[in-house]
Each structure stands twice: as structure tokens, then as C-alpha cells.
Design a protein around this nucleic acid. Structure first.
Length: 190
DNA sequence: TGAATGATTTACT
DNA sequence: GTAAATCATTCAA
């Protein structure tokens, strides 16, 4: 599953919605390991209407809502019964930048357009309607990087926003393209 | 039925 | 740097 998270970096995310098609290059993702991972929603094997899709077959979208105003998208990776997922945190906009900017109500050139999980979902128009969607076909799917594109320099770091996860917090399960300006605060070493 | 809380973002001091 | 916004989901009763 960690391999899947790493391989996501550089791949394309495409959403063909009623308002148009948007796509972007994935530059940041985090792995959530399942029942043993305190930071995961499926910690302890909790199987609820919300986490249900993670227990199913891989390749589907786990979409959920947090903080009363933000959606997140995950790629379900574990085999059936293995509730693992990869959270997509940031992309570089490619197609449909104007549509993203309209949805986000900001200038299309700003990095803030898609450099966070909630921002990405807003820009892509991802919401509850895409819960459990098959990520191998439209309207929402992943595509391999375009041929000839340079392999990204993938770096790792601890995950973000999961301080409550105790020992699991420090696991370097966040993967990102070290050269992308769309990755939030690529932390400098001291 | 009701209360607590969060895989965040944004605005403000 | 700190805090508010804001509600689906979850857990307790």
C-alpha cells in the first residue's frame, strides 16, 4: 500500500463533471494503513456506513467530510477486508484551471488553488456524489503520467493533521514530489 | 434524541 | 500565531 501511495505521485487525477473536465498531476499523498493505524478512520476495524467502502475492493474512492466544510478524497488500496486507503492531498492543475478557479473563487495562478486536501476537492468538485466511485473509469479516474514526463523526485515525511495518533504520527507515510511548488511547506531539515 | 469531535481552511490579532 | 467556522458521522444514553 505504501508502494501505491508512492506510485500515485506523478499520476493524473481526472474528473469529468457536468460543468466540464478538470485534471491535475498528483504531487502529494498519504497512506493510511487500516485497523492498526490510529490515524486511520478504519482504526480498530471500525466498519460504519462511512468507512464501508474501504472494506470493499480496491480502486474505489473513499470520499468523506470533515470540519463541517471540507471534503477529502482517498484511493482505496487494500484487498477486500483490508481497510486501507491513500489520501490525495495536493495536485498541480492541468486541465480546467478556469473551472477550478471559479469553484474556489480565486485567481487561477495561485498555488492555493489545489495545494491541500480540502482545496483539491473543492477545485475538482468532488463531494458525496462520488463516494465509492470506481476510479478506473469516468467521471472520476486516475491516469498514468504522460509518456516522456520526467519521473518525480519523491520524498517522504510524517503525516499531517494527525497529532492525536500517538506513535503512528511520526511514520513517514506522506509522499510528495520534492520539486513541486504545489506541495505545502516541504519542511527544511535543521 | 442529544453531544462531541475532526485526515482543514481561512481570516484576523 | 491563534481561533472561528460548521456539520456529517459517531458514540453514549
Amino acid at each position: 500500500m505504501l508502494e501505491v501511495a508512492r506510485d500515485c505521485i506523478g499520476a493524473l487525477l481526472v474528473h469529468e463533471g457536468p460543468e466540464g473536465t478538470v485534471s491535475g498531476r498528483i504531487v502529494e499523498a498519504e497512506a493510511y494503513r487500516g485497523p492498526e493505524d490510529r490515524a486511520a478512520h478504519s482504526f480498530g476495524g471500525r466498519r460504519t456506513p462511512r468507512t464501508e467502502v474501504m472494506f470493499g475492493t480496491p480502486g474505489h474512492a473513499y470520499v468523506f467530510f470533515v470540519y463541517g466544510m471540507h471534503w477529502h478524497v482517498n484511493l482505496v488500496t487494500g484487498a477486500p477486508g483490508q481497510p486501507q486507503a491513500v489520501l490525495l492531498r495536493a495536485v498541480e492543475p492541468l486541465q480546467g484551471v478556469e473551472l477550478m478557479a471559479r469553484r474556489r473563487r480565486m485567481d487561477a495562478r495561485r498555488r492555493e488553488l489545489t495545494n491541500g486536501p480540502g482545496k483539491l476537492c473543492q477545485a475538482f468538485g468532488i463531494d458525496r456524489a462520488l463516494y465509492g466511485a470506481d476510479l478506473c473509469q469516468p467521471p472520476l479516474y486516475l491516469a498514468p503520467p504522460p509518456p516522456g514526463s520526467p519521473a518525480p523526485r519523491v520524498a517522504t515525511s510524517p503525516r499531517i493533521g494527525v497529532d492525536y495518533a500517538g506513535e503512528w504520527r511520526e511514520r513517514p507515510w506522506r509522499f510528495f514530489d520534492a520539486d513541486s511548488p504545489y506541495v505545502l511547506r516541504a519542511r527544511r531539515r535543521s
